[in-house]
């Protein structure tokens, strides 16, 4: 990688290793513009709709497959064992791919242990299971403070932990990405796996929130 700043991020797909020359870039831009002009003229695309369309994709949170992983672990004890033993394989077992050499590790919350995930160097994040990272996950404040004062940071998220709960902070890297297996909420005993998956929030799988069953 020529760009050392991003070495913490595993490339999801072939990135450019040697950069294009300015001339090559100009040619590609010209080729694209020519195609666009042609398609606009033929009435096949509307120019102003194109930007809006890209924005939809840029803002798309993603598949959020992690919620289904969590719900399966809550309802199938043998799956949970496999998940804690070898998360990469167990997640793939549910048909969720795209992990491109990232090793997934699942850490389980219990009444006495609370896990929370950060990437202190940049913003490594398991997109295939968690979707797009929240804005705060990439903020310097979160990345720098969480490893030092996790309890205080979690409190700001509205999560107060008793003194006897051990807090474990997991620092992601290009090689290892973490998913928190939250505690199954009280009152969810009769719920189906599908309904359970709907309860599981992204924040709970990063470890900054608990899950509760809403009672009206």
């Amino acid at each position: 990688m020529s760009d050392g700043r991003h070495r913490h991020d595993a490339p999801a797909s072939p990135y450019l290793e040697n950069h294009r020359t300015a001339e090559e870039s100009a040619e590609l831009a010209e080729r694209t513009a020519r195609l666009e002009d042609y398609l606009v003229e033929k009435g096949l695309v509307a120019r102003d709709a194109l930007d809006r369309l890209v924005e939809l994709y840029e803002q798309d949170i993603g598949p959020m497959n992690g919620a289904r992983v969590v719900a399966r672990a809550w309802t199938d004890p043998s799956y949970k064992l496999r998940l804690l033993d070898d998360a990469t394989t167990a997640i793939r077992e549910l048909g969720f791919g795209g992990m491109q050499g990232e090793h997934m590790v699942v850490v389980e919350n219990t009444p006495t242990v609370h896990n929370v995930v950060v990437c202190s160097l940049c913003s490594c994040y398991p997109w295939p299971v968690l979707g797009l990272p929240p804005g705060w996950y990439k903020d310097f404040a979160y990345r720098s403070r969480l490893p030092i004062e996790p309890r205080a940071v979690l409190k700001e998220f509205g999560l107060e932990l008793a003194d006897d709960v051990e807090v474990r902070v997991w620092d992601s890297s290009a090689e290892i990405r973490y998913l928190v297996l939250p505690e199954r909420p009280d009152g969810s005993g009769t719920m189906t796996e599908v309904d359970l998956a709907k309860l599981v929030s992204r924040d709970s799988m990063i470890g900054v929130a608990r899950i509760s069953v809403e009672t009206e």
């Binding site: 999801a12 797909s13 491109q100 994040y125 797009l132």
Partner: peptide, 12 residues
């Protein structure tokens, strides 16, 4: 697969 960096689409 679309090029992404920690989930965000990458356009150079």
């Amino acid at each position: 697969e679309l090029p992404r960096r920690s989930g965000d689409l990458v356009f150079h």
